[in-house]
Design a protein around this nucleic acid. Sequence first.
DNA 1: CATGAATGAGCCTTCATTCAT
DNA 2: TATGAATGAAGGCTCATTCAT
Lengths: 230, 230, 230, 230
Amino acid sequence: MADPQELADGLTEEEARREISDVRIRWRTRQVLDAAVRLMNGNGFHAVSMQALAKEADISVGLIYKYFGGKEDVVVAVVLDLVGEIQSAISERMAAAGADPVERLAAGFAAYCTVMDSHRNASLLTYRQSGVLSSQARNRVKMGELSNLSTLRKAAAQAADAGLLIPGIDLDLLVFDLMLLAQGWALKSWHFPPSYDVGRYIAAQTAAVLRSSLADDARQTYRHLLEAGA
Amino acid sequence: MADPQELADGLTEEEARREISDVRIRWRTRQVLDAAVRLMNGNGFHAVSMQALAKEADISVGLIYKYFGGKEDVVVAVVLDLVGEIQSAISERMAAAGADPVERLAAGFAAYCTVMDSHRNASLLTYRQSGVLSSQARNRVKMGELSNLSTLRKAAAQAADAGLLIPGIDLDLLVFDLMLLAQGWALKSWHFPPSYDVGRYIAAQTAAVLRSSLADDARQTYRHLLEAGA
Amino acid sequence: MADPQELADGLTEEEARREISDVRIRWRTRQVLDAAVRLMNGNGFHAVSMQALAKEADISVGLIYKYFGGKEDVVVAVVLDLVGEIQSAISERMAAAGADPVERLAAGFAAYCTVMDSHRNASLLTYRQSGVLSSQARNRVKMGELSNLSTLRKAAAQAADAGLLIPGIDLDLLVFDLMLLAQGWALKSWHFPPSYDVGRYIAAQTAAVLRSSLADDARQTYRHLLEAGA
Amino acid sequence: MADPQELADGLTEEEARREISDVRIRWRTRQVLDAAVRLMNGNGFHAVSMQALAKEADISVGLIYKYFGGKEDVVVAVVLDLVGEIQSAISERMAAAGADPVERLAAGFAAYCTVMDSHRNASLLTYRQSGVLSSQARNRVKMGELSNLSTLRKAAAQAADAGLLIPGIDLDLLVFDLMLLAQGWALKSWHFPPSYDVGRYIAAQTAAVLRSSLADDARQTYRHLLEAGA
DNA sequence: CATGAATGAGCCTTCATTCAT
DNA sequence: TATGAATGAAGGCTCATTCAT
């Protein structure tokens, strides 16, 4: 009954509009998040004013409030963004590492460290939540962190099931420690000489953790990982 | 030129005055630091105003500025105070642990964790300074942290010299990890169920670290430490 | 100079367009005014943002600016709209009241009160303009109010001419008081218990005013009005 | 045991300090209230910013917040201040009017009008509460207004008891109308020619109200009030 | 030494208004 | 004609810091 062209156009138009809107939202959001991370580099979040953020993001103050509910929302978004990036990195590198659960675990840890290294400043935020964020926001961040760990934990569980890990080992503690070590690089890498880079850190920590958790039978298999840190 | 009597009196009086002054300064300082730690519990430092601090410390705002240069100085002092307390705790517990270097190391780690546990909120500060503090202040904090580690490192070195540790192990990394694990409890203990307390954490992490670093020959000797975490 | 055909077409078309345009303008204007009144209910005008108004009116922000010069214009329009509604109500009810001037006056007052009651919130606006509006706009509002009163005044004058009112009574003051009483209901009806409604208010105030202004000879005639408030 | 002088001094000192503090509070509060009233003259309260208020009061913004909880508190204080002044004026003038209840009522009304006249601008505030104030604040204002009315109502009740008023008259409505008329002068005196002043207004309205409420027997006694408005 | 009243810059947030589409 | 994304000035409020007492 309706002109098919018009109909088609109509649909397309609305679709197109939504497309554009979605693209814009993503673009604006990214603008702000990137600017936020850039500014937090050495100032902490409390020191970053919304006007400074707007300026850095090359956007008006008011517009930020169109895309984020307020300052807290921006913090949460930055942190969750980081969490998401970690998740992606871990998944990708683990997939690329093949089927061996220990290799996958090592790859996941390496990915974690690598992301922390490149987002050293943003990651500090994770430690600034305590009282700044509402408990709801805090919970969202925690959930994100846990979801990251669960990916690692799966690989660890597979390794344990395959008898590759020390019997009776506490898998939760294992991945908890992996997280601490990964985050530790972002937070405390100034402890190491400038020549020390992520690569060496990853190798050394991987070796240390595996020494602590690998079953005796499996040590030969993963000799390359155990010795890399030497 | 000066009246000798006055001079003599002046000196004594001045000395006495200094005594009193010193005591007062220490007392006032402590008042403020304690209040600061108390207030930071659950709010972070940025959320604590100087007037709130003054009220909590039962002191006037103006007086805080007589004893501290400003707000930043208070933060630095709080952090350094914590560092000092860690130092004391480590030293004491290590001394009480006897001569065995591994026992001493474990005791030092336990002490570190225990202090972090009781000052959970203050320790978060260590992670909030990055850009808030001047680089000079930041350095002072870093030096403090390093001095804490060096105490642990000495014990580790003794253990290594005694052949109790895996040959060729990176001692710096070892103590670095101990620090991360200790601080990790303060920062991330929400990862664990409420029933999990510092004691279990210390036992488990001690076991994990020793599994990773103890020489094969020494494992029998420290079986009580290795198995405590199970 | 101009193509006659185009001219002819232009005229007809233009006329049609104007028709349509006029209708649209009225429709849009009403949309906005109704939305404005609805929103002002319980918030006052300052609390209503243009974007909220646009949303309530189901119109875009930009379009409001096509039909109104700005926010102030909207306020003025709302108030004038109310004034107009009062005018209509008064005229209608007075016409329906028949020829007796006192009955007409009472009917006019009742109409005034009734409108104020149903537009309680909008009427508050009349009291919020003082400095917000330009003196020009303020004058337009005043003129509107005066024109409302003049309708009442005519009936009062007729009553006076017919010897129904106390000789020498100040008619301006009489209608002024009627206005105050009518507006008083909108502004201060919280003084009365919830069971007290406009109807009772109208009856009581009508009786009070007539007791004050009716000539002795006329009291018998309007006994129904004088006793209604008891 | 204690040096009486010191004791005396101590007491006096604390007392003196409180004295001074109280005086300061009152002084500052008045500074702000006066400035607020001055600024509201033709701008309405929403148009007055805290910084403008601070400037007008010759005080810093921050200090206003020491004496008032926020902007709303200032409005409430201004209104309550006015209410209090009305109360005082009514009480004084009624006391000065002697024992006759009708004279007292007339005096109270005159006082009400007079205060409204001299605080014409502040009184507008009373009408701006609806949505701007919290319901709690609104209630405080209402209570104030009611307490003013109750003073008038007592005189009215005495008059009624003495048989001076029309039997069965609604006293609440009577004082309600007195209030409306008094406030009406502040709000709508532009209805009258410039030559018309409060004095004439009071006389005319007093006469009008008494015509409406005085018992027939009493009309002779208060002829001076009934005829003053002519 | 000690106080706390006073300051005012600066923060987060809102919203009237514009303009490209 | 109609939209709504974008702007940025301005508002309420806080709080580090000073200074007269």
